[in-house]
């Protein structure tokens, strides 16, 4: 049984069927990639899983619980984290603050604790600060700790967004084109980073155009075209799949 199962998932935007009866399963601990030409519905699937859109049909089960229809923050609390295709760190916040907000679902202090700075709040704050610094250190962002996120180089902003998502200690992470706009060196670092995340026991669903990244690190791959799933398999199978080659060549 997978950690996340998608069953017969569809969504329409007006006349456009952006995701068309898609089913797949994500196994605990694996790296599953979703690939497909532009506009094939990859980001939309992430938006459906994270509760930003409500599906027209189908089910999303996370650890056997039905999560479609839940609000995004509830989905986050359940242990699903994601990053965005267009980088979206909180620009005016410092790097440390970005990671601290990432801890949000784990912090138990109530509004009253925050307002009156109770010892419970202070203890938790010290704890998450330590954890945030550890994470920043682990992912080589510590040198920017007090810098505003918007001042970071592009690749580092992407990394920061991943670390922010990681801070909530999710069970599964959805990464939407993390290598987009990165130079080869940054991409190498990213591959290592994703490996580190996997080693933490976190399941990863990756949407990526960079085939080197996809073929290097995925256990399995799903291919979408016009909202439909057209193939599924291990990298070797996908590389040789006729329909996949056609879908990609047809577009280019």
């Amino acid at each position: 049984m997978g950690i996340l199962s998608i069953e017969d998932l569809s969504i329409n935007f007006g006349g456009l069927v952006a995701v068309d009866h898609v089913s797949f399963e994500v196994k605990r601990g694996e790296i599953l990639s979703i690939i497909g030409p532009n506009g094939s519905g990859k980001t939309t699937i992430f938006n459906l899983i994270s509760g930003i859109y409500k599906p027209t049909t189908g089910k999303i089960l996370f650890k056997d619980k039905l999560i479609n229809g839940m609000k995004p923050h509830t989905v986050a609390f359940m242990g699903i984290a994601r990053t965005f295709q267009n980088v979206r760190p909180f620009k005016q916040m410092t790097v440390l603050e970005n990671v601290l907000v990432g801890h949000h679902p784990k912090v138990k202090s109530l509004f009253i604790d925050d307002l009156f700075h109770t010892s419970k709040q202070r203890k938790e704050e010290v704890m998450i600060r330590e954890q945030a610094i550890k994470l920043l250190d682990l992912f080589h962002l510590k040198q920017y700790i007090d810098e505003k996120a918007e001042n970071l180089p592009y690749g580092d902003q992407r990394r920061l967004e991943i670390v922010r998502a990681l801070a909530s200690e999710p069970e599964i992470m959805l990464l939407d084109e993390p290598a987009a706009g990165m130079n080869p060196q940054e991409t190498e670092d990213l591959i290592r980073l994703i490996g580190q995340i996997k080693d933490l026991g976190i399941t990863i669903v990756l949407v990526e155009h960079d085939m080197k990244v996809v073929m290097d690190i995925s256990q399995r791959i799903i291919v979408l075209d016009y909202g439909k799933k057209i193939a599924e398999g291990v990298p070797e199978e996908i590389r040789k799949n006729e329909r996949v080659i056609e879908a990609y060549l047809g577009k280019d």
Partner: peptide, 11 residues
């Protein structure tokens, strides 16, 4: 800063 990003991290 970003309402959707905030929601998605659990706010």
């Amino acid at each position: 800063e970003d309402q959707t990003a905030a929601e998605v991290i659990g706010v």
